[in-house]
Design a protein around this nucleic acid. Sequence first.
RNA 1: GCGAAAGUGGCGGAAUUGGUAGACGCGCAGGACUCAGAAUCCUGUGGGGUAACAGCCGUGGGGGUUCGAUUCCCCCCUUUCGCACCA
Length: 863
Amino acid sequence: MDQRYQAKAIEEKWQKLWADEQSFEVTEDPAKPKYYVLEMFPYPSGRIHMGHVRNYSIGDVVARYKRMRGYNVLHPMGWDAFGLPAENAAIERKVHPEAWTQENILYMKTQLKRMGLSYDWRRELATCQPEYYRWNQWIFLQFYKKGLAYKKSSFVNWCPSCATVLANEQVVDGACWRCDSAVAQKELEQWFFRITDYAEELLKDLDQLTGWPDKVLTMQRNWIGKSIGAEIEFPLVGHDGALKIFTTRPDTIYGATFVSLAVEHPLALQLSSGTAQADAVKQFIERYKNISTAKRGADEGEKEGVFTGAYCRNPFTGEDIPIYLANFVLMEYGTGAVMAVPAHDQRDFEFAKKYSLPIRVVIQPKDQELHGDTLKEAYVDEGVMRDSGEFSGTANVAGKEKIAVYAEAKGFGKKAIRFRLRDWGVSRQRYWGTPIPIIYCDKCGAVPVPENFLPVELPKDVPFSGKGGSPLQESAVFLHVDCPKCGAQGRRETDTMDTFVDSSWYYLRYASADANSAPVDARGRYWMAVDQYIGGVEHAVLHLLYARFFTKALRDIGLTHVDEPFSNLLTQGMVSKETYKCAEHGWLFPNELAGGEKDGWQCPQCQRAVDKGRVEKMSKSKKNIIDPEDLIAAYGADTARLFTLFAAPPEKDLEWSDQGVEGAFRFLTRLWRLVQQHGELWTSNGSGDGAAPSAELRELRRQVHRTIKKVTDDIDGRFHFNTAIAAIMELFNALSLAAQDTTKRSAGAAIIREGLESIILLLAPFVPHVASELWEQSGHKERLDRVPWPSYSEAALEEEQLLIVVQVNGKVRGKMTVPADITQERIERMAMEDGRVMSFCDGKKITRLVYVPRRLVNIVVEG
RNA sequence: GCGAAAGUGGCGGAAUUGGUAGACGCGCAGGACUCAGAAUCCUGUGGGGUAACAGCCGUGGGGGUUCGAUUCCCCCCUUUCGCACCA
């Protein structure tokens, strides 16, 4: 037996065995409870990083633990393989996106395998495979049939110099990332998914996601942004028709002294034409039309507007009030028109001040009298309605409802609910994505590709120049196609789908990854929903919201029976590490520093003292990354996993420490050695020298069972792997001491063996390779993967003695060890008789005695 | 600006329901082994204080509730994250 811990050899041995024996491949088994654990699949960028190591280590602990607890565990892995970087690689390095992606997947897969993750690799999928994305297209067609997919005109970022559409992340400070020219807004017809149809359900069902972090629920709630209010029509003066506005404050309508329209409002030009304001309005629109709404919000603060020259009538006061254009009104929300109540809305207040518009107070707070001309800021809190006709005197909260009901009765308004959530624009003018299965025909319009023609595959003959619109427009093979309806010459849609579409249903696909007549078959019913989903918090809104929407929409098509895809969600923290920065030369790698720990580090270029220690999220640019591959080569996967899991609880940020890694490695080495050194424990089947175990040994046995209980509770209830590992280390230290003592070693052989076996089993989910090896070496024929999780015995937990803390006025003044079956009276008497305790009570009156069973006595004295 | 989370030794962190603050790991110090080093093992390690003990101080700061507060409440400070004209 090798005395040294050889991580590499051990890990290779077990990884090969697991692969050869398909240890983690699962099929549906109605006799067993199922458990579906899923980590967010990676983008195949080329190499795995520490964030992946952390994410997948956490998931693997859960998977292996649940397996040991008797669950039928589905634990799959795949690739979020479409996306922009592949296309950039094509432009910059002349590699085809597909080749680039395939190569990355292959490399990263061997990296993941080296971590010993217990995946069912048969279910592996890559979203760029036609067998996968054909179902994106199929789903698109189902959505189209149901009206959930539709086309409308919308704006994209456009670089006039590169003549190409830019993704949001390619726009840096309003300029093109490559050529730095100013980005314009260009209007295009694009495809949308009607996620807003599900807004109400997406909001309501958040309540049933009790296994999600509150933070994520709140973010989703805010994103959906439900507002309850009213829609009211303001008749135009001198024109037909009316302006429809949405407000959450109908109670303030008597204070509406003007109306503000979005710059893009369709009536803007029409209303001003023929008035003296026509030119001013044109200029104003011209000025804002190329600035995206996001950009307008960025220089928040300055309210700008222009009078349209037109008026509308406030239907409640009967007054004619002016109509303005305002830069802060959003066309995409509500109706693109708002009634402005300067006294009770801060934005309207600022606008009114700037353009000298009347400010009329109509909500009166309890404790003060407000006047429009002395108001310093808008009053937005509750109060009583005043100067509001027949509604004066009504509490404003009740007034909201009354105004809306009144307007509805009179036929110029109604109660209304609005969401901040917008429909999901899925069109991308890119190559490396799922082609949208639509054909345009001059006669028939937009015609869906018949399902039996799917997949619409990406053509290979596409040049990647980084110029022009969608690269698919360059492919003659792809573009020209006959209309499926009338047979005339048609033209394919050249937009591809947002990659968020791919990741919105992949968890369903894993359940039946080889199904070829539907995205998911009956096996989905067995496996869904995902019991535990694990990933970064950066996906708290978009990915998780889109996936929830897909689940509901697919449920309505009959593809799944669940309302929500992920029952429990764990958002892991990021991995960070200290950085070194030179004031002049920027970030530095630790190994390029000059100087030393003692005299301080210096910049290799300018010899200036380096600013050390700020802990930042690991990133290439900050030069503080650790490559998992180097780590595994140096210490092995088990050490990498152990440290990652030990250094912090999963939901918190993890600060990387090279010395901490050493510590984890040291622990495994010590465990290895202890098992090697006591081979006799495994061969002899004696339970010691036959004498009854000493009190110390009995306590050691209790610790074994206490540890099993603690580790079980820590993993199962709260995923606190760090404290679970700490408890195992503690037990190890105790066993290690006992094993060094010859008397204890012989008398307590059975207990030490039970302890070591427990440690190996408890460590199995964390460090599966070394645990498997030690299990085998300690004489067990059965594979560790098939051994159940250890159970503890309540009887073995029973304490013989208790440690009781004695306090005087809440301060610890003594401790006593007492038999567990002692009475309260006796404990209290002993506490009072304790010498040190007595000295604190000396001459003082005891007013009270607090006894916490099995824990402490607090003597309360006076004076 | 609004909202949320967090702040504990030299460092990462623990204390799960209000009951011994600092588990476990790192670092550091002393010792053993060694010609020496590395590795390993043992002991110690919140601060101050003492010959040693004791008492004393201590969970960002200030107040409160309680027999007892890292934990609950109020105010303030700092950091991180999210949202940021959504009418």
